[in-house]
Amino acid sequence: MFDYNFHWRPVMKSLPDLLEASLLTLQVAVLAMILGIIIGLCLALIRLNMRGPLRWIASTWVELARNTPALFQLFFFGFGLGAFGLHLSPYMIVLAGLTFNCAGYLAENFRGGFQAVPDTQIRASRSLGMNAWQAYTRIVIPQVFRIVYHPITNQMVWAVLMSSLGMLVGFRELSGETQFFASRTFRIFEYFAVTAVIYYVIVKLILGASRLLATRLFRY
């Protein structure tokens, strides 16, 4: 009834390659998050404070990022731009796709964060003689950052897991590398089982680090 023979040896032999590929996974996810946070913050501020074409662009960005499959977004930067003669490297396709997606989700988190800080905090800051920039950077943004901290952690986890879509545009990150070895050895199950464990460990490490950082950052 169950006559599949597991062969773990090939997987173990390519484990160093897989671990190296997982660093690439982590790298692209971290970069996408850094860019996503910066762009997401801008998108949120535009949507909260501006009118006109800039606001329209920001809203469209958020709508597309949140309401279409991440895979399609990646394909857009790969095959979509390719159709117009703009060929990005697999690395850039994944980075651009993930950044686009993360920025859209994070923009909504930031928007909620800004709306959760009462206007009276700004009034109190201004009444002390702070200018608008000081009130925002010293009083509002630190509070917003705390509100969006855990959603950002979530998004970071998503970025790591979503980077596995890179496999489908020829990017040799952890999943791409796994696919490469699996198709050469036909030990598909073994390879993806081990890779799943690696993803699990990466995510657990991110969550642990985030929790540790939170206890240091937020004493109130």
Binding site: P118, S127, L128, G129, I139, Q143, F218
Partner: peptide
């Protein structure tokens, strides 16, 4: 405004 200290109904302390 530095000449005009203000205290609000909702005290508005900075929580962080």
């Amino acid at each position: 405004r530095q000449q005009l200290g203000m205290v609000f109904q909702q005290w508005n302390s900075f929580p962080h």
